[in-house]
Write a protein that binds this DNA or RNA. Structure first.
Lengths: 311, 311
DNA sequence: GAATTTATTTGCTAAAAGCATGTAAGTTAG
DNA sequence: CTAACTTACATGCTTTTAGCAAATAAATTC
């Protein structure tokens, strides 16, 4: 597993195994096209015609990776059945813009609905949590394989809810242990801070933002009060796997926005010299480094830093 | 979106859209079978023969949902090429058990490897984070759609390490909120217990077991000291998705074993009347219910119970 | 305006896969 | 123990699916 080449090979095997599984699974789930009025390819073609704006035959052939001659033949069949009509293009006399007729739409809809109904029935049989996990996972795969479909936001900011504090604690513990060699006592400290946050939570003065991606917590930021007019930013983190999306910047901005609207006049935060990426985010967000002191904690030596900015 | 029926319908549409996308995507990715020695179906068939133990033609036809006649014909082709051999069954003279010959294995391997190599090359082109997200998402889908394949590795017990306390806290918070309606203050309580455990950790007197499965924490148990001769079992949990594997029983046994070897003479634990499954585990592990008192906490009314056993 | 390119159609063909029937081996009712 | 039925696989025949290559017609380039 440590050898990158063999890891890649086993990933490839897993990938293909999934594909094999999925295609056969879907084959079993899709209503039987055997003997039905339209084949699966015809169905796809109709779908594309319905969901594009006046496509041409060539466009469909290219998009679906189907032989143009075959597409032409299938379209002829649709025309014979009165499902589509082909309007000559104003600019180019060779191409013909295709669209479903009323009759085509009426014929296609029930076929499409029937297939969807089978899928819906299947989904309804799943536990609600599984259903959303399934669709999230599908969106994830789609987002990775098909960059043209940026499928909604790559991440989501939301307030905290049960399970989040633990996730934030776990992420801090793992991250700081892996990257900076902190020992377990750091995770204990974070756990206490999180517990204090919950027990003393005052929505007017405190706030927590959780960054979520693929159903998992990938970032957080907390705002608590240092004194009457000073807010304190705490526990900012972004998971390694979600970096480069601007999540850290966004969380910091949201924290500042909240602090301002809650009436604080200054904001302070505590960090240290080894957290290079975080320092950069703070600097760009308008914080200044105002004090330093050496610190031995969590089994590591570092320089603790205080940063501040006016709001 | 608030209407459950229309939500289900849109989920179904998303589900099918993904399937459409994925099958066409995979079709494009698989090496071109056009003109190649074997068709995709032949490839699947060879794969099934290689990965089953002496399958029969009928078995393959049923599993792959392919016409028996067609399967028979394809098998004949394989036999003609010397790729498979058919041994008559001892019990039933009609059936013939199939297996790859050496030559068949040698012919199949490169085809299979080539397909895997294409997949590997594709995966190598992805960002490393995307690759792991992709495979995780695939495993998620597979786990939901195909519960019969609950991954090879059942589970693993190990001591705690960075990130585990947070995971345990998160699991408690989520689980008790979902199943019993506990509010956030419960998660804060668990966080404090976990923090205290780490800060006061004494390997001779305390212990923590983490149950891990597919790289995630799916269960835990803690042993701390109540007094000189009494051990206290705490924070036993098993994730919903890992139930039925005997993890709860196993964790409890390990906790008892540790307590005994650490020299404790009694073991006590605190639970409540609504945790039916946990109570059953404690009962079977030899604990007796010795005291009850009503409790209002975490936004819920319950009856707190103390259980004990000698070691 | 001839040559070339592009969008679509059509003739031909091959592969893929199903249906119906056949055959031999096994099972069961009388 | 046989006749009737069932099961597992094989074969003949056919349909469906889909590709290649050449044809046609409009558009573009030289």
């Amino acid at each position: 597993m440590s050898d990158p080449a063999s890891e890649l090979a086993s990933d490839a095997a897993a990938f293909r195994q999934f594909s094999r599984f999925y295609t056969s699974y879907i084959g079993a789930l899709e209503p039987d096209h055997q003997g039905s009025a339209v084949s699966l390819t015809e169905m796809r073609l109709l779908y594309e015609i319905a969901h594009r704006d006046g496509p041409t035959a060539g466009e469909l052939s290219a998009a679906m990776q189907v032989d143009p001659g075959y597409v032409s033949r299938l379209l002829k069949g649709f025309r014979d059945r009165g499902w589509i009509e082909a309007a000559p293009d104003a600019a180019d006399g060779r191409v013909r813009r295709l669209s479903l007729t009323e009759h085509g739409r009426a014929s296609f809809a029930p076929m499409y609905d029937r297939a969807n109904a089978v899928a819906a029935e299947f989904l309804a049989g799943l536990a609600p949590g599984d259903r959303s996990r399934l669709l999230t996972a599908m969106a994830t795969i789609r987002g990775i394989l098909d960059p043209s479909e940026p499928s909604a936001a790559p991440y989501l900011l939301r307030p905290h809810r049960p399970g989040d504090m633990g996730a934030v604690i776990a992420a801090h513990g793992r991250l700081y242990a892996d990257e900076y060699g902190f020992d377990l006592s750091f995770e204990a400290l974070v756990a206490r801070i999180a517990a204090d946050f919950i027990d003393g939570f005052d929505p007017a003065r405190h706030c927590c933002w959780i960054a979520e991606r693929d159903g998992g917590v990938v970032g957080s930021v907390f705002v608590v009060d240092a004194d009457e007019t000073t807010a304190k930013l705490r526990m900012l983190f972004v998971d390694e796997r979600a970096r480069g999306l601007g999540i850290g910047k966004r969380l910091t901005e949201e924290a500042i926005r909240f602090a301002r609207s809650a009436g604080y006049r200054r904001m302070t935060l505590w960090t240290n010299d080894i957290l290079i990426a975080a320092r950069e985010i703070y600097r760009k967000a308008g914080f200044d480094h105002v004090a330093s002191e050496p610190l031995n904690a969590f089994g590591v030596s570092m320089v603790a830093e205080t940063w501040e900015r006016d709001l």
